[in-house]
Design a protein around this nucleic acid. Structure first.
Lengths: 213, 213
DNA sequence: ACCTGAACACCGTTCAAGT
DNA sequence: ACCTGAACACCGTTCAAGT
């Protein structure tokens, strides 16, 4: 017991692999946030000299990108049956479930410029839904970009606590924040419903009138 | 010429004030981003020993909060005439204009948990618009929270370049990204319109049917 | 009261040396 | 090929000392 992190055997035998580094880093991020991840701490957890990491990962930015890709690969959205509205709802639900699994990583990734890449199942899935909704081919990317940015903001605010804090604010300066009064939206599910219904309503309004199907 | 930053006189005479520190920090952030701001660099720009800053600001987190409040105070939304839809549109436009003035700071602030505070003109302005739209008093805060999170995501993605990058993606893997093809939305104004219309449509759908006025 | 130098406990990363 | 120790150029922050 009290082993040096995930080291399979003793200490000093360094079995370093790119994927092993990423998963160890992800565990640190899940536990303490991206801010608490350092090359030196990661090396300590792996029972290895800090410099050894640089033989498998060029630098810290690449490390974070690798971790991000590790969890991005887990995202396999199920968008099949139903109307495009139902598909979009399921798509958003799946993404939100992934975010809840690794909130610290998601908070960091959503705020950084290169979170979504063209090959990500996220982007291919979303463009598929938009196409089936009747969005013209030339508009799929710009419309998808706007919907992505809006929904990312929702997830970011939910993960870092901003959403809950704002939702609990009292409009009048009368009695100061008494917390969750009227059986409010403690788990954020109501906020999620409203956010997704907003995106759907916006897309419906943007589509040519006859395409409701 | 070639003075030590903004030092009014020579060097060594340290005229430090809380506001002077914040404005100097804001200039550094505007120039190089929050990541490039350090207590030591800030002190160098002010022509002062790094430790002197700690007599006016408790730590770096408080420094960033002070800078944020400095620009948050600049936000004076003009929400008067017109329908609530027009008010919401103007409100979003004003906020976006502020974000364009200090993109580096906004990117950092939108991603951090304590950007918006109850007394901020941002929150009071938004809740005012929602009330005039007919949102019941108990729903103003939760609805405002969702709209804020969605719109923050749009601004964040616009500021850090994600929006433009996604919008330029080609849906089919045919010919790789040829850049702005069909006179696209280079300045993001079209994306902004779509984002705000989406928020308005979502709010309209959420309101009780007769409240369109 | 305010400023400062030295110091502590960290960072990411390079490089020459080991095996 | 992979690992390592020493070193460089940074951080934020504490503390005792100066004026």
């Amino acid at each position: 017991m009290a082993t040096t992190g995930q080291a399979t055997g003793g200490r000093g035998d360094a079995r370093l692999s790119e994927k092993g580094i990423y998963t160890a880093a992800l565990r640190l991020i899940d536990a303490d946030g991206v801010g608490a991840l350092s090359m030196r701490k990661l090396a300590a957890v792996l029972g290895v000299n800090p410099m050894s990491l640089y033989h498998h990962v060029p630098n810290k930015a690449a490390l974070l990108r690798g971790v991000k890709n590790l969890v991005a690969a887990q995202f396999q959205p199920q968008v099949d049956g139903g109307t495009w509205q139902e598909q979009l709802y399921r798509f958003a639900s799946d993404f939100r479930a992934l975010a809840h699994r690794h909130p610290n990583l998601i908070v960091h990734s959503l705020a950084s410029p290169d979170f979504i890449e063209p090959e990500d199942p996220f982007w291919t899935g979303l463009t598929g839904v938009l196409t089936s909704a009747g969005v013209p081919a030339t508009e799929v990317a710009p419309v998808g970009a706007v919907l992505t940015s809006l929904f990312s903001g929702f997830l970011l605010a939910e993960m870092n606590g901003t959403l809950g804090r704002l939702a609990a604010m009292q409009p009048a300066p009368g009695r100061a924040g008494s917390g969750a009064a009227s059986g409010a939206d403690a788990d954020g599910n109501g906020s999620f419903e409203l956010a997704v219904q907003t995106l759907i309503a916006g897309l419906e309004a943007h589509l040519p009138p006859a395409t409701a199907r």
